[in-house]
Write a protein that binds this DNA or RNA. Structure first.
Lengths: 124, 124
DNA sequence: ACCAGGCTTTCACAACTCCTTCACGGGCGG
DNA sequence: CCGCCCGTGAAGGAGTTGTGAAAGCCTGGT
């Protein structure tokens, strides 16, 4: 109904993005081949985002998917866990960027190698 | 309600114009395949204009659509945001021009390739 | 039942981006 | 010359997101 590839094998798929690999069936995340230790929320968030790439996912949809209920007013849980997830991903793969913020819209998953070159203006 | 093609899939459509692609459902804008970071107002303006192309859209209609209220006397918000949007589009796609001014009437969206004249494909 | 350790939620503040408004300047027509 | 319209840069306040830490929960082991 939504992402085409998600209709196929909802739980038997493997998501690959740069040096990152998510084996849904095993709830296993590999960073450059080494397993990553994620909590339930962190894992849920990663799958929810990666699964919907490259689209922008709203906080409300993330909350509904990972937490099971719509975002209450003032709830910062999603932000906090995006932060934790980013921290673990960066520690494992410092030269990649995976979660991108779209102010006013939500977050978007996309594996971007941070190689040497630098960008002039926007986009940190 | 207004433009014919907008009656179809109000939120599931994809607007393509030259190297620019707007995925309404995802609030995602791609410039030559790379995602663009637009603010809420910038995105709203782009959609409002692209959605109505090739028609000239008055400031008042843009204000009503994007800001939710008619243009107050002396309000320059629309002009300012057209400028910001142009800046981001030009940075991403320097060889294209998208927003055209019609003095006394408003703005019009149309993808025009600048120097190298090629791949027009669409009507002009 | 108690404890230890990790996980989750909440809170407060910092940092950052966005929105609005103002101000000035150029182009054009009367 | 004057007025109107639009382009453009800047400033301040408003709103959004990043971040560290405290407090609450839950679970497995003893």
């Amino acid at each position: 109904m939504e992402a085409a590839h998600r209709d196929q094998a909802p739980e038997g798929r493997v998501i690959e993005a740069g040096e990152l690999e998510v084996r849904i069936a095993d709830a296993l995340v590999l960073a450059a081949g080494r397993p990553l230790n994620l909590s339930v929320r962190e894992y849920g968030l990663l799958v929810a985002l990666a699964d919907r790439a490259p689209r922008i996912v709203s906080r409300d949809e993330l909350s509904a998917t990972v937490w099971g209920n719509p975002l209450r007013d003032g709830d910062r849980s999603v932000d906090v866990y995006v932060h934790k997830l980013r921290a673990k991903l960066e520690e494992a793969l410092p030269s990649w960027q995976f979660i991108h913020t779209h102010v006013g819209f939500g977050y978007r998953f996309d594996a971007v190698p941070l190689h040497g070159f630098h960008i002039p203006a926007t986009t940190r």
